[in-house]
């Protein structure tokens, strides 16, 4: 019952299917491919219904650029996760601003942080849309330089970088 006849031909046809798929995939997503090759891909949640049109979309920042920005500028890290997770461990210097408490906490936040301060927002990694949604809200609130660190807390922790834990009260 196990039929391996013409295996070489079958493998060749597999390669042809893959090549066809690559050509179709790249041509169907030409704009995205160009953005990626130029080093400015869209954030992975930019196609959500919450995303506004036009230039009001936050830019992504990867781990290496994030570390450079932390050292060289006044970049403020913002943790979009719930406060329990923030307390359990967060990036050094990060400020907690949970997405579901944004309405009540935004006025105080705006008084403390000027609108031209560069911000980088993270949550629980690539599967988590909260950092993007929070970035959209902060852009709408008048902050000019808002980036999303999509790797988030898991990538930072798994890279062996320092994590700050709040002591229990």
């Amino acid at each position: 019952m196990h039929d391996y006849s013409n295996l070489r031909r079958v493998l060749l046809e597999v390669l042809v299917i893959v090549a066809l798929g690559v050509v179709m995939g790249l041509s169907a997503n030409l704009k995205l491919v160009f953005q990626v090759l130029q080093g400015s891909p869209p954030t992975t949640h930019s196609s959500d219904a919450t995303a506004p049109a036009g230039d009001n979309t936050p830019r992504p920042i990867d781990l290496a650029s994030l570390r450079r920005s932390i050292e060289n500028s006044s970049l403020l890290l913002i943790d979009a996760r719930i406060s329990e997770l923030y307390a359990a461990g967060h990036l050094p210097g990060a400020v907690s601003l949970p997405l579901d408490e944004i309405e009540s906490r935004l006025p105080a936040f705006r008084q403390r942080i000027p609108g031209d301060r560069p911000l980088a927002i993270y949550c629980n990694g690539y599967g988590c849309p909260d950092s993007f949604d929070l970035a959209v809200k902060l852009l709408a609130a008048g902050y000019q330089d808002v980036q999303v660190y999509e790797g988030g807390f898991p990538e930072w922790r798994d890279a062996g970088l320092p994590v700050v834990t709040e002591k229990a009260p």
């Binding site: 299917i17 893959v18 066809l20 798929g21 690559v22 179709m24 995939g25 790249l26 169907a28 997503n29 995205l32 491919v33 990626v36 891909p41």
Partner: peptide
Amino acid sequence: YLLAACLPYIEII
């Protein structure tokens, strides 16, 4: 991104 662009079409074919 490149894999995400190509893999769906390979699966479709």
